[in-house]
Design a binder for these strands. Structure first.
Length: 276
DNA sequence: AACGATCCCTGTTGGC
DNA sequence: TGCCAACAGGGATCGT
């Protein structure tokens, strides 16, 4: 699933293709992909003929500056991936957005489950979107342990649920949240407000360690149909996963079988010996 | 306000 | 072997 490392890897691939280019054609697949109060026709109408600025990212959102003070937002949802192609390449099934540049490149969004979305916001619209409530980026704007502790103080929800809350910290999804908690030796079920200062410090240290390794490996491709890099390659962080998807298998540190529980309606994996 | 449950969607998986 | 229900999950929304 695309989480921060997958979105960052995607960003790094598409940035040189889009930045400075002018958009010469826009094709939207399903209308459903235009959400967040966008009409489907707004997407091509607002992008067409405009020059692209910086390709940025906050959490799992791609935020692309577009001439005319617009922000082109792309979210990959759970099954979205992007491809860089030439216009003559055949369309993949479930292609939801095709953007052609004046340099003759195409950037495509492929998303079978359509949990992803596309929007092109004016500054006013951006301000009123839930994007405005997004917390600090888990890599670029990571708070220190004391600041995170203050955000978690008094909270009784499981720390796993709070790590998935993008208003607290933007970028962690189900896979990397489990991996971060393993590295910090904290069980996903622990109430967020109960973490000790030492555990908060371990957590804040674990976040960039896990996420940077994920970025370096090009993200996590769970199987051949899931996330792929924009050049079609698979991300290789799958080989580094310590707990996610390993229920019943021995912990790679201590050998205890990894357990699976449901937290915040999501599967959560942890080592009952290593994590307290 | 905080928290948990539900919904959206479709390819894959597992049980019978 | 073949069918079909269950499962996967990011984010919005709703009920308590």
């Amino acid at each position: 699933m695309p989480e921060l490392p997958e979105v960052e890897t995607t960003r790094r691939h598409i940035a040189p293709v889009l930045e400075g280019a002018r958009i010469s054609a826009v094709e939207l697949g399903r209308d459903r992909m235009a959400r967040r109060n966008m009409r489907p026709q707004d997407i091509p109408e607002r992008l067409l003929g405009r020059r692209v600025g910086r390709v940025g990212r906050r959490g799992k959102f791609l935020l692309i500056e577009v001439e005319g003070d617009l922000t082109w937002v792309i979210h990959l949802g759970m099954s979205g991936r992007m491809r860089i192609t030439s216009p003559s390449d055949p369309l993949d099934p479930h292609t939801q957005l095709v953007v052609t540049t004046d340099r003759g490149d195409q950037v495509r969004l492929i998303d079978p489950r359509t949990f992803g979305f596309v929007a092109v916001f004016t500054p006013e619209e951006l301000e009123h979107d839930s994007l405005a409530a997004l917390g600090p980026d888990a890599l670029e704007e990571l708070p220190d342990a004391a600041t995170l502790g203050a955000r978690l103080a008094g909270r009784r929800a499981p720390i796993k649920a709070l790590l998935l809350d993008q208003r607290i910290l933007a970028g962690l999804g189900n896979i990397y949240a489990d991996e971060v908690l393993f590295r910090a030796r904290v069980r996903p079920t622990r109430p967020g407000g109960d973490l000790t200062p030492e555990e908060l410090a371990d957590l804040v240290a674990a976040i960039p360690e896990v996420l940077l390794a994920g970025v370096e490996m090009g993200g996590t491709s769970l199987d051949d149909l899931a996330y792929l890099l924009p050049d079609g390659r698979a991300g290789e962080y799958l080989d580094r996963l310590m707990v996610y998807g390993r229920a019943g298998e021995p912990c790679l540190v201590c050998g205890t079988p990894i357990e699976r529980v449901v937290v915040a309606q999501r599967s959560s994996h942890f080592c009952p010996t290593c994590q307290r």
